[in-house]
Structure formats: structure tokens, C-alpha cells
Design a protein around this nucleic acid. Structure first.
Length: 883
RNA sequence: GGGCGCUUAACUCAGUUGGUUCAGAGUACCUGCCUUACAAGCAGGGAGUCAUUGGUUCAAGUCCAAUAGUGCCCACCA
């Protein structure tokens, strides 16, 4: 037995056990044909990442699933890793260069990449170490990185397969160009925001007659420099006569045609649209339909190029906008400016407006891949929790567009396409060719672009198991079981993993997807660095301990709803663990060193009512926790454990057995104490997935020598034989009596130190047995001097009364009783019962209710009516006696 | 413009299959307690027209519809 401090101190415990678990290799998994596998692949955090509250939520959930599965006897693998996060990482390292006044171009591609690898080796482990603080039980021997050798191989295999099938293609399209990171982005990496802007009305004069003009409205004046037409709706009577005529584009003085296109909305703006095919997706489509010229007026960084005209070269978009407007004003071609709110695409990473740009990029044709992915989810082969995300998933996949996968970055998987300068050969290759297979020329080069980070992430469930090589790990662990992730990456990641799993592995990648909520601050705002409202989880762990953080988060995290987080909520978790700690201390204090409780078993003990009762309640809890975890109702499971431990075990059971524990007769304490230890041990096991550290600490001080660490102990299964409904009812009555006595004492302000006499009148001797059996418990918890139970008791003068079922409780309070107070109390109680009676009678007087409601419901209402009437009668009698 | 959520006590939220201890928890508040496990505690208490309106039903926080407020996602309206 150990001495335990009065307050639980996580700092002393957590690191010790994490090292212990690692030393014992409990987290490591190898294929074991005798066991069923249970596998989770971690959503790999960015190497650049720092632990956020989102990670805490997500990884606690996974750890709960994993630890439970491990205890249940599955061969459990939780495979960890990090994501190379193309743009984020490259930007981060470029910033360190910039501080030295350099750019990546000064270093050149090779050296720059080497620099990022150095950075990764130095800082990439930070988030992993932070996760370890949380207690996650990942198999660190299997840690992977989306840019490591094995994953690169998988990426290349996939690229070549899709290329050879014709599903990867190169094309000139309007893409989202990020002018800060100088790369194309996929549609998913663009966030639309409502921006207050302007509508500028410009006059474009006719070629034949420059006194006449057509009025157009635009939100982006600077793009007029690339206009190659003006479009109107063919049915628009106002403009019909002008179709086919030629305008002079001001400033540039280019001749542009007026074309007719259905796309144009007659009602919007002026009904005439300037067309800039190289800088707007819709205009691009129109440009193709009408064979217009595509004039790109911008450089990669969204400054103006020579096509924009000499006076604009080098200007930023913003500056060019002002210049163009001014110039138009000077030319007297600016008609008016109106305020206009419209949506602008922003780069997700850099938070700057993206530029739609015509550019040569690589794409994946997605439609074919999407179809089977839709099927497996809608057929229920992959289950989503909460289910409603299926709709979002369907909507995206049904309207899926081709995925732009090329990025003009240096950090990432390079596109494995090779070209021959001499004969024009082009091919995707699994290994770097030394010469052109067609003409033997050595004049070959590889595509300069790299792949979107998600191109490696979407292979994560099987690339981490060394696909494409056939190997025992892949056979054993794939498909994985659960995926836990946020709904914000349902398109980026979840949908694409499903597509990849089906396409390349021929099998779903996971059976269940649990979508967590998003953690927000107490005002409902998203946590973000710029707002400074994102607490550092490591500080919280220092303050409360990882267990309290885990448990606290689980208590407030409802299924799939967003979570408003406030640090004070974690106090509940911390207090709970302290309660558990102290309950343990209490038990320890009562264990005699010279008695070995591990030699006892429940079957050979004689159990009193409280023992039977707590064992029954315990099994209810086991059942409920298992049910809730199975349904991913983590907060309900946490609440089950909280309520059982605090309200049943501590508040009632331990209090009930105290007299026996303090008794001189050692025999008397054997059975209650053993049941206390037994119950505590099961609580610890159920709690272990939620709060691994404290449970391992307590477990190791209480377990018998032949038992293992709790982390690999057996998970408690429901044991029906302990359920005892009769005892539960009995104890409920006893507890109601005790509470009634306490209430009177409290309301009559009888101090706890003053013992009282209590008389209980059991008129019909209905509860004689129960009362006799449990009178000691009532005496001790009610702080009673003398307890008298009889069928013939006369209410003593000046006593407070209460009614439980049809028992009357009298507490004589000579000298203490305040008649007015007691009257008030009784009036309140009487009012209470009258209300209830009225409600019940209302139901019973409704003939339809009696006729149509099921019999047991009607029966129950009748019983209630009788009982209320009885209680009311007794209360009223007592009230009258007071007068 | 479409889709998906949310609205229950002062605050943050549970409430699964309509019925029975279903009107709850934690925090906060009030009263009394340093009762030898725990003041991060114990005992007791007050507090809600379950957003509004209508419908289905013997019976509605619970199912349906509409409305209001609020949040998120998707969508090419210059």
C-alpha cells in the first residue's frame, strides 16, 4: 500500500507511465493470425503544425477507441504520421530565408529542398511529441511521413496507373492562382468570402461611330485590359441590333466584337458583359464557344505584364485597378460607380484573393472514380457518424469536377512525367529513365511541377502499409476500422481516400467514419491564431493534467456538434479525477496490511443490501458505457462513468459502508471493502480509455501481483447475474427516507453535529422487512440518535413530518421547531402533490386515454393516483395538527 | 440561389425508440457544514410557457409543417 497525497498530482504520474508503456512495447502491433485486427490510421497532422484543441479532441477520441479495442483483445494498430503539407511547409522555410534576405531561387531547387528536409528533421517532431503528452497509444515504430520513400513509391505507382488509363491529363484551363505562393490551387483550397466592392460602369464606344457606346458593368476594371469581346443575351431586345458589330476597347484601342451568348443575364448589370477569357472561368467558356482571343495580362504574381499595355507593366492588381479607373475617367468613359457586394475567392493558406488564370496544369478526371465511392457510402458499406454528412458527401461527388493536382512548388512529390527534347516523347514513369526509350536521346527532362499534398494523403490508408508491395501487414490490417476526422476535410481527404481505396486496392479503406465537431471559443468563434483565442493545449496539460483535459473534453463534446470551449469546463474533469483519487485513498486507508483481498471472490462472500445494490448499479453502468461507446456516444459514456463514480459509488456506497469499516469486528468489513475494491477496479478499467494515466497509477497500486498493467487488462463485459432489480427498489426507498430526513434537518436548520430522534410509522407494515434490514444505514446517514419503526406511532408534539410512499416520518424537535417554517414546508409539499395528482387525474378522466393507451401505462397512472392521494391525505392531516 | 445544423434554467449543454423518476447535468446562485477520503469537498434548496404558431396522436422537447432568430457548407451571376 502506498501513501497517497490528498490532491491528485498528474505531473508526478503522466510521464512515468508513458515511458513505462513504451518500454513494455504495448503500443506496437504485428499481424497475429490468432487475433482479429483493429486498425486506425491517424489523420496525419502537418509537420509544421502545433497541437490545437482540434487535435486534442480528435486524438482523444481515437485513443479511446484504440485503448478499448486493445483491452477487448484485438490486435490493435494505431498508425501515426505526419503530412509534408506542401504549401505550408515551403512557405515556412521560405520565411526563414527571407529573414536572411534570400529567396528559394538564390539557393536553387536542390538546395532549397535539402533545407526543408533539415527543417523537418529539426522541427517536424514537435507535434508528435505534443501528441505523446496527451497519452496517445500510437505504434511509433510504424510512424510514417507522406514524403518518405515508401509513400513516394505509392504516389508514383498511382500517378502512372492513372496516367496510363488516361485519367490524368494535362490541359490549359482557368485555374485558381495564388499570387503569394505562386502556384495553382484546387477548387477546395479556395474560400469564397463576401466582399464589399464596387460596380464600375464603363462606356465602350462603337468603331463606326465613337459618339455612341455600349455600357458595361464590372467589378474588376483592371481585367478590361484583357477583354476580347462584349457579350449580350441573344434575346435582349435592347442589344439585338448590335450583335456582330465592333467596339473599340478603350485605353488598349483593340477592336472587339459584340457577341450573343445565353450565359448573359438580361436583368443583371447593364445586360452587356465584358469578356476576359483568360481571367474568368465563365468568360473562358464563352471564349471557347466564340473562338475569342485569350489574352493573359498578368504575371505569376498577379502584376500586370506587357499584354496589359506599357503604362501598366509591373503594377499590382490593386494599383492597376485604380489606374484603369482613372484613365477611363479622363477619357470620360466612366459612367458611374455603385457599391456592390460580391463573393471573392481567397487562398485558404495565404488569405489573399486568388486570381483566375489561364494556365497549363495537370488534372485527374474524377467522374469515374466518384461513382463507386458514392455507392459504398450509400449502400452502408462505409458508415458515417453522424449520418447527415452523407448528404454533403453525395452532393460533392455528384457534382465533382476534375482535380487540379499540379503545384508550382518545390516541396512535394515531383510529377513523374518525362519529356524528350529531341523527339517529343512524353510518359509517366515509375523509375527515372536515363534516356528516351523512343529515340535513345539523353536529352530528357522531368516535369517541373510537384503534386498537391492531398495526392499523397488520399493513399494514406494503404500506402502506410507499404502498398503497392504485397505484404502481410497490408493483408492483415487493411481495410482499417475507424476513421476519426473533422467534417471540414470531407472533400479534401475522406472522399478522396474512399475513391483511392476502391480504385487501387479494390476495397474500402475504412468501415466507419466518425466526424467530430469543430472546437470554437466560448463566443462561438473559430479558434485561430490571429484572434488569439486558441489556448495552447500544452499549457492546459500543465495546469490540469492530460487526463483531466481528455475527460473534460469528452464530457462537453456532443456527437458531431460544434463545441464551445471554455477552460473552466475542464475543472469538472479535474475535480472528478480528484474525487476518484480520494475514493481510492479512502479505500486504502481501510485495508489492513495483513489481509490479502486478492484471495477473496464475490461468490464466497455474504453480501449486504448496499453491496448487492452497488454491484447491480455497476453492471448497469458497464452495459450503458459499452452501448454508448459502440454508438460513438463518447460524452454519454463519460457521463455514465462520472455519475456512477460520484453519485452512486462515492455519495452512497462508501457512505453506507462506513460504519462497518469503522467497526471493531474485522469480519464485518470484509465484504463491503472487497466489493468496494472490486467496483473500483472495474471503474478504472472502464475509465482507462478516457483517462489512461490516473487509472494506470491507481490500478498499479491496487492490483494483485498476478494482474497485468491496466492498459492490457480485460475490458469489462456486462454481467447480467449481478443485476438485482429488487434490491435496487429497496435501496431506492431507503435512500428516499434518508433524503427526506436530511431535508427536514436542513430546512429546520438542525446542525449535522446534533443527532436527532426519528420515528417512522409503517401503518400497514408493508416495508417492515426492508426497514428492519436497513435501519442501521438510515441511522448512520440520517445522523439519528434513536430510530423507532412501528405500525402504531402517534405523532409526537412539535415534530416535523415527511411522507415517503405511505410511510410517515416524524422528527421531534422540541425547542428547535419553528412552527411557521414547518407550516410553509408542508404547504409547499401539499401544493406539490396536488399538482401531480391533478395531472394524473386529468389523464385518467380522459376516456380515450384509458381506452387507447397501453395497459401498463394506464396501470402506472392509476398507481400514481393512489399513492399521491395517500401522501396528500397524510400531509394534510399533519398540517391540521399544527394549527 | 440550394443544402445542412442549432434554439431546453442566469451560462454551457444532455435529453437515443413519443408514455413510466422526463423536464435533467455541470457551472453559477442561496442556506447550513473545516462530519478523521476529498472545501477541487459534504448535505439541502430556488430557478425553465423546452424559440413561435399550427398539425398528427389517448399522449409531443421528442414526429410533421410553417415562421422567426442564428451558424455552417455548397453554387460561375459579370
Amino acid at each position: 500500500m502506498k501513501l497517497l497525497s490528498k490532491v491528485y498530482d498528474p505531473q508526478k504520474v503522466e510521464d512515468k507511465w508513458y515511458s513505462h508503456w513504451l518500454e513494455k512495447n504495448y503500443f506496437h502491433s504485428e499481424p497475429n493470425p490468432k487475433k482479429k485486427p483493429y486498425t486506425i490510421m491517424i489523420p496525419p497532422p502537418n509537420v509544421t503544425g502545433m497541437l490545437t484543441m482540434g487535435h486534442i479532441l480528435n486524438n482523444t477520441l481515437q485513443d479511446i477507441l484504440v485503448r478499448k479495442a486493445r483491452m477487448e483483445g484485438y490486435e490493435t494498430l494505431w498508425l501515426p504520421g505526419t503530412d509534408h503539407a506542401g504549401i505550408a511547409t515551403q512557405t515556412k522555410v521560405e520565411k526563414t530565408l527571407k529573414a536572411k534576405g534570400k529567396t528559394r531561387y538564390d539557393l536553387g531547387r536542390e538546395d532549397f529542398i535539402k533545407l526543408i528536409w533539415d527543417w523537418k528533421d529539426k522541427y517536424g517532431g514537435i507535434i508528435i511529441n505534443q501528441l505523446k503528452k496527451l497519452g496517445v497509444s500510437c505504434d511509433w515504430e510504424r510512424e510514417r511521413f507522406t514524403l518518405d520513400e515508401g509513400l513516394s513509391k505509392a504516389v508514383r505507382e498511382v500517378f502512372v496507373q492513372l496516367y496510363d488509363k488516361g485519367l490524368i491529363y494535362k490541359g490549359k484551363r482557368i485555374i485558381n492562382w495564388c499570387p503569394v505562393s505562386h502556384t495553382a490551387l484546387s477548387d477546395e483550397e479556395v474560400i469564397h468570402k463576401e466582399i464589399k466592392g464596387n460596380f464600375w460602369y464603363f462606356k465602350y464606344p462603337f468603331k463606326d461611330d465613337d459618339s455612341k457606346h455600349i455600357l458595361i458593368a464590372t467589378t474588376r476594371p483592371e481585367t478590361m485590359l484583357g477583354d476580347t469581346a462584349v457579350a449580350v443575351n441573344p434575346k435582349d431586345e435592347r442589344y439585338k441590333k448590335y450583335i456582330g458589330k465592333t467596339l473599340i476597347l478603350p485605353i488598349v484601342n483593340r477592336e472587339i466584337p459584340i457577341i450573343a451568348d445565353e450565359y448573359v443575364d438580361k436583368e443583371f448589370g447593364t445586360g452587356a458583359v465584358k469578356v476576359t477569357p483568360a481571367h474568368d472561368p465563365n468568360d473562358y467558356e464563352m471564349g471557347k464557344r466564340h473562338n475569342l482571343e485569350f489574352i493573359n495580362i498578368m504575371n505569376d504574381d498577379a502584376t500586370m505584364n506587357e499584354n496589359a499595355g506599357k503604362q501598366f507593366i509591373g503594377m499590382t492588381r490593386e494599383k492597376a485597378r485604380k489606374s484603369v479607373v482613372k484613365e477611363m475617367e479622363n477619357l470620360k468613359l466612366l459612367d458611374k460607380i455603385e457599391e456592390h457586394i460580391h463573393s471573392v475567392g481567397f487562398s485558404e493558406r495565404e488569405n489573399v484573393p486568388i486570381e483566375p488564370l489561364l494556365s497549363q496544369q495537370w488534372f485527374i478526371a474524377m467522374e469515374k472514380l466518384a461513382k463507386p465511392a458514392l455507392k459504398v457510402v450509400n449502400d452502408g458499406k462505409i458508415k458515417f457518424t453522424p449520418e447527415r454528412w452523407i448528404k454533403t458527401y453525395n452532393h460533392w461527388l455528384e457534382n465533382i469536377k476534375d482535380w487540379c493536382i499540379s503545384r508550382q512548388l518545390w516541396w512535394g512529390h515531383r510529377i513523374p512525367v518525362f519529356y524528350c527534347e529531341d523527339c517529343g516523347w512524353e510518359s509517366a514513369e515509375k523509375t527515372d529513365p536515363e534516356k528516351c526509350p523512343k529515340c535513345n536521346s539523353k536529352n530528357i527532362y522531368q516535369d517541373k511541377d510537384v503534386l498537391d499534398t492531398w495526392f499523397s494523403s488520399w493513399l494514406w490508408p494503404f500506402s502506410t502499409l507499404n502498398w503497392p508491395e504485397n505484404n502481410p501487414d497490408l493483408d492483415y490490417y487493411y481495410p482499417t476500422d475507424d476513421l476519426v476526422t473533422g467534417p471540414d476535410i470531407i472533400f479534401f481527404w475522406v472522399a478522396r481516400m474512399i475513391m483511392a481505396g476502391l480504385e487501387f486496392k479494390g476495397e474500402i479503406p475504412f468501415k466507419n467514419v466518425y466526424f467530430t465537431g469543430i472546437i470554437r471559443d466560448s463566443q462561438g468563434r473559430k479558434m485561430s491564431k490571429s484572434l488569439g483565442n486558441s489556448p495552447n493545449p500544452l499549457d492546459i496539460i500543465d495546469k490540469y493534467g492530460a487526463d483531466a483535459l481528455r475527460f473534460g473534453i469528452m464530457l462537453i463534446a456532443p456527437k458531431g456538434q460544434d463545441i464551445l470551449f471554455d477552460e473552466s469546463q475542464l475543472e469538472t474533469g479535474r475535480n472528478f479525477l480528484n474525487k476518484l483519487w480520494n475514493a481510492t485513498r479512502f479505500i486504502f486507508m481501510n485495508i489492513d496490511d495483513n489481509f490479502d483481498y486478492s484471495k477473496l471472490s464475490i461468490s464466497e462472500l455474504e453480501l449486504n443490501a448496499p453491496e448487492k445494490w452497488i454491484l447491480s448499479k455497476l453492471q448497469n453502468t458497464v452495459k450503458s458505457v459499452n452501448k454508448n461507446l459502440k454508438k460513438y456516444h463518447f460524452n454519454d459514456a463519460a457521463k455514465d462513468l462520472y455519475n456512477f463514480t460520484w453519485n452512486y459509488f462515492c455519495d452512497w456506497y462508501i457512505e453506507l459502508i462506513k460504519p462497518q469499516l469503522y467497526s471493531e469486528n474485522k469480519e464485518l468489513k470484509k465484504s463491503p471493502l472487497f466489493v468496494a475494491i472490486y467496483t473500483l477496479k472495474i471503474i478504472l478499467k472502464l475509465l482507462h480509455p478516457f483517462t489512461p494515466f490516473i487509472t494506470e497509477e491507481i490500478w498499479n497500486s491496487i492490483k494483485s501481483e498476478n494482474e497485468s498493467d491496466i492498459i492490457i487488462s480485460d475490458w469489462p463485459n456486462f454481467q447480467k447475474e449481478f443485476i438485482n432489480k429488487q434490491i435496487e427498489d429497496e435501496m431506492k426507498l431507503v435512500m428516499e427516507i434518508i433524503t427526506a430526513i436530511r431535508t427536514i434537518r436542513s430546512e429546520m436548520t438542525v446542525p449535522p453535529s446534533k443527532k436527532a430522534n426519528v420515528l417512522i410509522k409503517d401503518k400497514f407494515e408493508k416495508y417492515k422487512n426492508i426497514l428492519n434490514k436497513n435501519s442501521d444505514y438510515i441511522t448512520s446517514l440520517g445522523k439519528i440518535e434513536n430510530l423507532t419503526i412501528d405500525k402504531n406511532i402517534k405523532k409526537p408534539n412539535l415534530s416535523a413530518t415527511a411522507v415517503v410512499e405511505n410511510l410517515q416520518i416524524y422528527i421531534p424537535l422540541e425547542g428547535l421547531i419553528d412552527i411557521d417554517k414547518e407550516k410553509q414546508r408542508l404547504e409547499k409539499e401539499i401544493g406539490n402533490f396536488k399538482g401531480r395528482l391533478k395531472a394524473v387525474q386529468g389523464k385518467l378522466q380522459n376516456p380515450n386515454f384509458v381506452k387507447r393507451a397501453p395497459e401498463n401505462i394506464v396501470d402506472h397512472e392509476r398507481k400514481k393516483e393512489i399513492s399521491y392521494k395517500e401522501s396528500l391525505g397524510l400531509l394534510e392531516k399533519n398540517y391540521e395538527k399544527l394549527m
